[in-house]
């Protein structure tokens, strides 16, 4: 009886069944299918293929683009998680205070997050145009001609330039979550701290930051997972170039599966991306599970 109650009984399984079937049919089955193809040399079009064991995985070790893409992914993850989260927190704290035009400012800062990624890529592509783009035009207008660069056209700046666009795009999301979380912190704590002589900085570290702990989990975990899925912005802004300078694992997987007729190898890359993403998201899932069971 106790066991039955703990697992919710047949009724609960009955309610869950439709969603489970969809999950099995549209996620688990295709996923395992992909895992299977990672052990083959399928070209992605032909009716037949050969089983090659773990060759696709060992080939990744010798593929210089995989090493470059993995490094780019790491750089991307660190920069596009840390910078938007810090900026988003700063903006949230400012906008949570006494600032004029708060609703308008919130709208302005959040707007990039709702724009289609291809539009964002086009906007930044034009801004970065070496001859007619606003960024170089601005630099030239203030006498900094030497700083004008072909931002997306050279290896040294291309990845950084795409990350700036990603940061612009992503700041709004943590800002919104932190704003919501800030409004949940009891104001009496700040009043008491002020009476006790605590400065703003002390209040931030000892009241605000601990009060935002649950929000930190959500923001950081979702940002990290999002950063591992990077594909569209790179694809639309640089197409992985110049050369392979801005390739990330997602785009390199795509190139192999869809453009180089190496679906087996490409799916092996997809498997690796998935394993890494799952490993990174374990702390978040555990924290959520603990919260739910508490």
């Amino acid at each position: 009886m106790k066991r039955r109650t703990r697992h919710g009984g047949l009724v609960a399984w009955g309610f869950a069944a439709p969603a489970l079937l969809v999950y099995l049919g549209f996620l688990v089955y295709p996923a395992l299918n992909s895992l299977w193809f990672s052990f083959t040399d399928w070209d992605g079009l032909s009716a037949s293929y050969n089983i090659v064991g773990v060759d696709n995985y060992t080939s990744m070790v010798d593929d210089p683009v995989v090493a470059q893409a993995a490094l780019n992914n790491l750089i991307w993850a660190v920069v596009t998680v840390v910078v938007p989260v810090v900026l988003g927190l700063a903006l949230a704290v400012v906008l949570n205070g006494k600032v004029r035009g708060k609703p308008v400012l919130r709208l302005i800062f959040y707007t990039p997050a709702v724009l289609p990624l291809v539009s964002v890529a086009s906007i930044w592509g034009w801004l970065y145009n070496p001859q007619y783009g606003a960024i170089n035009a601005g630099l030239r207008a203030i006498g900094l001609d030497s700083l004008a660069q072909p931002w997306l056209g050279q290896d040294s700046t291309a990845l950084g330039a795409t990350m700036v666009a990603a940061i612009w795009l992503r700041v709004g999301f943590p800002m919104l979550l932190y704003l919501a979380a800030l409004q949940g912190i009891n104001q009496e704590l700040y009043e008491a701290a002020t009476v006790d002589g605590a400065g703003r900085w002390q209040q931030f570290w000892h009241i605000t930051m601990p009060g935002l702990r649950p929000a930190h989990y959500v923001v950081i975990a979702l940002s990290v997972i999002d950063s591992f899925k990077v594909f569209d912005l790179i694809y639309a802004m640089t197409y992985g170039g110049p050369g392979t300078a801005t390739q990330v694992m997602g785009t390199w997987m795509y190139f192999n599966v869809f453009q180089y007729n190496q679906a087996g190898y490409g799916t092996a890359i997809a498997v690796v991306i998935t394993v890494v993403a799952i490993a990174v998201s374990i702390p978040y899932v555990r924290s959520q599970t603990k919260e739910a069971s508490a």
Binding site: V271, I273, I278
Partner: peptide, 10 residues
């Protein structure tokens, strides 16, 4: 290995 792999199926 379900999550995520579905994006790359054929």
């Amino acid at each position: 290995l379900a999550a995520g792999l579905a994006a790359c199926t054929g």
